[in-house]
């Protein structure tokens, strides 16, 4: 099992994965963007049988270079906090967690 699925399953309750219709069996596709500035890979996590991912996990390719993920997480939190009901058109931050120095 890969590092992302291990993390999600181990933290199922604290992350409230039931809200995203995610069961014990997680389907995923790993996206590896190729444009020059891209420094991350993405895991799209799908509920069983659904064509739409409900979670996106972003992982820096290089260890120890996490600042852009941290900045993005801070920006998402800030914008969602800017009004009480948040914005459904903008992703919500579920968690930011360091693992293997990433």
């Amino acid at each position: 099992m890969n590092m992302i699925l291990e993390f999600l399953i181990a933290n199922r309750e604290s992350l409230h994965l039931e809200k995203y219709n995610l069961s014990d069996k997680l389907d995923f596709v790993l996206l590896a963007p190729r444009f020059r500035a891209s420094s991350h890979i993405l895991f799209l996590i799908f509920p069983r049988g659904s064509p739409r991912p409900t979670l996106v996990v972003k992982v820096p390719r290089l260890a120890g270079i996490n600042n852009s993920v941290e900045r993005e997480a801070a920006n998402l939190s800030a914008i969602q906090a800017s009004r009480p009901e948040g914005f459904n058109s903008i992703p919500y931050l579920v968690a930011i967690q360091e693992s293997h120095n990433r």
């Binding site: 995923f28 596709v29 790993l30 996206l31 590896a32 799908f46 069983r48 049988g49 064509p51 991912p53």
Partner: peptide, 21 residues
């Protein structure tokens, strides 16, 4: 060499999702 997607081959769902999401 130019990989942009890595798709599980253990079940059909992942493969379908990878090309239609």
């Amino acid at each position: 060499e130019a990989c942009t997607r890595i798709i599980g081959l253990d079940d059909t769902d992942s493969q379908t999702l990878a090309f239609s999401f």
